Amino acid sequence: MTIAVTLGPVPIQPETVWRIALSHIPFFSEWVEADWSKAQEHIIWDIRFPRVLLGAIVGAGLSVVGVAIQALVRNSLADPYLLGASSGASVGATLVILFGAFSVFGQYALSFGAFVGALLSVIFVFFLSQVGGRISTVRLLLAGIAVSAILMAVTSMIIFAAPKEHAIRSVLFWIKGSLAGAKWDYLTIPALAVIAGTIVLLFQYRTLNVMLMGEETASTLGVNTDRFRKFLLVLTALLTGVIVAISGAIGFVGLMMPHIVRLIVGSDHRRVLPVSALLGAIFIIWADVLARLVFAPEEIPIGIITSLCGGPFFIWLMRRSSYSFGGGGR
């Protein structure tokens, strides 16, 4: 994180980065001598620090959501986009940006719109996937893919019908993901949501482990699989909506990080969840550095970087002889 903050059009030494950071902390500010310029302080504290922290929050959140969804469907090819959560959040956020929907919520309108879109899309997928009152994993996967495609088409239609041409570019940039709008005021809600969601899932790590053994085994061990799946669907919709509202739609993070972590630490969610959050945070921070610097002074959407990494990873994962947990869900 320190190195990421130092990189940019104006290079700044790591020592200066932390001296500026400590100067804004009440107890430490008395011991730090301000020997930097106002411009350096503005660049570090107002622009780069919140951007890097937002990247860490987004990366950790998407990775944790990926862990939950992969356990939900028992398939390591699953990610937040699979259940239509990201596509639904994109529809809600696009309506807010272009048409001012949910303006009654003020600065939280974007987050609320994205969450509502994510939740409604996940609920729709959930109902489509039910067979005889129970969720079918295969139908869940197929319904998620179909609903995602429909919602992305709806987002495109909204963009073309938008009366504000000047806002269309920002929406298109946002759809591919960006941390450019990071501000300190925007960090609180996503940070609390990701921390709370991760803690809740950590408390449920035993149930997540049991879910990997299959629905019948989980039921035999006393897990109410239908209720737990509903719980995971709502939680993943909430986290995805909050994250997409602040960063746009960033793909493949929830697919790659959990799988890489399972190769390193095994399938025990007590280890998978925190390590996935850590690796996801690191990955997004450096993907954003590349997005800022590759075509500097121009900036590209971070989703392009993650897709360039995630696409080949997905193909490799798909071509492996086995890509599911416990031999099911292929």
Results as ranks from 00 to 15, higher is better:
280 G>F: 11
50 P>V: 09
190 P>K: 02
179 L>G: 03
205 Y>M: 12
146 A>Y: 04
320 R>E: 10
97 I>L: 01
225 T>Q: 03
258 P>G: 07
255 L>N: 03
4 A>L: 07
123 I>L: 13
193 A>Q: 06
128 L>K: 06
260 I>K: 01
211 M>W: 00
197 G>S: 05
53 L>N: 04
219 S>A: 07
302 I>F: 12
164 K>G: 00
147 V>M: 07
170 S>V: 00
313 F>K: 15
158 I>K: 09
101 A>R: 12
172 L>I: 04
46 D>I: 13
60 A>C: 09
93 A>Q: 04
323 Y>Q: 14
275 V>P: 10
205 Y>D: 10
155 T>I: 04
148 S>C: 13
170 S>F: 00
217 T>G: 09
290 L>H: 09
85 A>E: 06
317 L>G: 08
267 S>I: 05
249 A>T: 07
68 A>D: 03
183 K>T: 08
317 L>Q: 14
152 M>I: 14
301 P>V: 00
26 P>S: 12
301 P>C: 08
297 P>M: 01
263 L>Y: 02
21 A>Q: 06
296 A>G: 14
182 A>D: 02
51 R>Y: 04
121 S>V: 15
16 T>N: 03
273 L>G: 08
234 V>W: 00
298 E>A: 08
250 I>F: 14
155 T>S: 02
308 L>Q: 14
293 L>R: 13
134 R>E: 09
106 G>I: 11
321 S>P: 15
275 V>K: 05
220 T>Q: 13
25 I>A: 10
75 N>W: 05
112 F>Q: 04
77 L>Q: 06
193 A>G: 07
65 V>T: 10
101 A>F: 13
318 M>Y: 15
154 V>Y: 10
71 A>L: 08
170 S>M: 01
263 L>K: 12
307 S>Q: 14
262 R>Y: 01
128 L>W: 10
112 F>Y: 10
152 M>R: 14
231 F>V: 11
119 L>N: 07
63 S>E: 02
